[in-house]
Amino acid sequence: MQPIEIYTTPYCGYCQAAKRLLNSKGAAFHEIDLAVEPSRRAEMTQRANGGRTVPQIFVGKTHVGGCDELYALERDGKLDALLAAA
Rank of each mutant, 00 (worst) to 15 (best):
Q2W: 05
P3T: 14
P3M: 15
E5Y: 00
E5W: 00
Y7E: 02
Y7H: 05
T9E: 14
P10M: 12
C12F: 02
C12N: 06
C12P: 02
G13P: 00
G13I: 02
Y14L: 06
Y14W: 07
C15W: 09
C15F: 11
A17K: 07
A17D: 11
A18V: 08
A18W: 03
K19R: 12
K19F: 09
R20I: 07
L21I: 06
L22H: 04
L22I: 06
L22S: 08
L22Q: 05
N23A: 14
N23E: 05
S24F: 03
S24C: 03
S24A: 14
K25Q: 13
K25P: 04
K25D: 13
G26M: 12
A27G: 09
F29G: 02
H30P: 00
H30N: 11
E31H: 08
E31P: 04
I32H: 06
I32C: 02
I32F: 00
I32P: 01
I32W: 04
D33K: 00
L34V: 02
A35R: 00
A35N: 09
V36W: 01
V36C: 05
V36M: 10
V36I: 14
E37H: 10
E37A: 09
E37C: 09
E37D: 11
S39E: 14
S39N: 03
S39Q: 11
S39I: 11
R40Q: 15
R41C: 12
R41K: 15
A42K: 11
M44E: 09
M44N: 05
M44S: 06
M44D: 05
T45Y: 05
Q46C: 06
Q46L: 15
Q46S: 12
A48P: 10
A48W: 08
N49H: 00
N49D: 09
G50S: 03
G51L: 09
G51Q: 13
R52D: 10
R52Q: 15
R52W: 12
R52E: 13
T53E: 09
T53R: 08
P55A: 06
P55H: 07
P55E: 05
I57M: 01
I57K: 00
I57P: 02
F58L: 10
V59T: 00
V59Y: 01
G60P: 03
G60C: 10
K61M: 13
K61F: 03
T62P: 01
T62L: 15
H63M: 13
V64H: 01
V64N: 01
G65I: 00
G65C: 02
G65E: 02
G66V: 14
C67Q: 04
D68S: 12
D68N: 14
L70M: 07
L70Q: 04
L70C: 03
Y71W: 12
Y71Q: 04
Y71K: 07
A72D: 14
A72E: 14
D76H: 00
G77V: 08
G77R: 08
G77N: 06
L79D: 03
D80R: 05
A81P: 02
A81C: 10
A81K: 12
L83T: 02
L83N: 03
L83E: 07
A84E: 12
A84C: 09
A85E: 09
A85H: 00
A86P: 04
A86R: 11
A86E: 15
A86M: 05
